[in-house]
């Protein structure tokens, strides 16, 4: 594996007495599209919150592009873009205004141009002057992705990005993720329940079960390892059964 862009070493997190991440070790190479799978409450969002510097882990370390998420927060936040689940953005601002504001906070000098180019790149220039408060879920999600990449981060975090999207929206999102990975070389870390999407878009997967990483491998190796399973859903169930 080349130099890992995301690395977790013995990562732990505890909410009061509840241990939700248990010594998670994980390395993700540059250019991967990583699908993080797990049941509700497995600890996926907690892990993502730690990696995006929103939450301080109670144990272990995590680095992004070699920077520690706790001690080098400033550097880490320059390398990442983040789309939280069910983001609504600033409804009173237009799509372009939302992007400009967030781009400036990320240190982009010509935020207006960056916002326009990002909207053009994602094929939603027509939304630029419309207020985000009037957008549908799909439109909001596209603007959500736009704000996450407006400063051209190296790593993109997507938390349940297909949640609430119709089939067309899901397909569009998948194509966008692949486009970002291909054109801009972004490493993508995606929390998701949509196993069908994972098999189509991800290059590697990890499965979290009650805070423990029970599986981590490339999609190709996974399909080779479970030749008898018809779909990723079956593999996911199988992996869960094999967990200690």
């Amino acid at each position: 594996m080349s130099e890992p862009v995301i690395e977790l070493r013995g990562l732990q997190h505890r909410y009061d007495t509840d241990l939700v991440l248990r010594d998670v070790d994980l390395k993700i190479a540059r250019g991967e599209i990583f699908g993080f799978l797990g049941h509700n409450g497995a600890g996926k969002t907690t892990a993502m919150n730690i990696l995006t510097t929103l939450l301080t882990p109670t144990g272990g370390t995590a680095t992004i592009c070699g920077y520690d998420v706790v001690t080098d927060r400033r550097h880490v936040t320059r390398q990442i873009g983040y789309l939280p689940a069910d983001v609504r953005m600033y409804g009173h601002l237009t799509a372009a205004e939302n992007l400009e504001f967030l781009a400036k906070l990320s240190g982009v000098t010509d935020a207006r141009t960056a916002a326009r180019e990002t909207l053009d790149y994602l094929g939603c220039a027509d939304l630029a002057k419309r207020r985000v408060g009037t957008f549908s879920t799909g439109m909001r999600q596209r603007i959500g992705i736009a704000q996450a990449i407006v400063h051209r981060p190296q790593v993109l975090f997507l938390d349940e990005p297909t949640s609430g999207l119709d089939p067309m929206g899901v397909r569009q999102l998948r194509e966008t993720v692949q486009q970002l990975n291909r054109d801009l070389g972004m490493t993508v870390f995606m929390n998701t329940h949509q196993l069908s999407e994972v098999s189509k878009v991800c290059t590697t997967i990890g499965v979290l079960n009650h805070g423990e990483l029970i599986y981590n491998d490339s999609i190709e190796a996974t399909l080779r390892r479970f030749p008898d399973e018809a779909s990723l859903e079956d593999i996911y169930v199988r992996v869960g059964e094999l967990a200690p």
């Binding site: 936040t77 983001v87 967030l102």
Partner: peptide
């Protein structure tokens, strides 16, 4: 809070 934009702000160098 309503717009759920705090994570967008705090995942930036702010």
């Amino acid at each position: 809070r309503t717009n759920r934009t705090l994570p967008l702000l705090r995942s930036r160098p702010l």
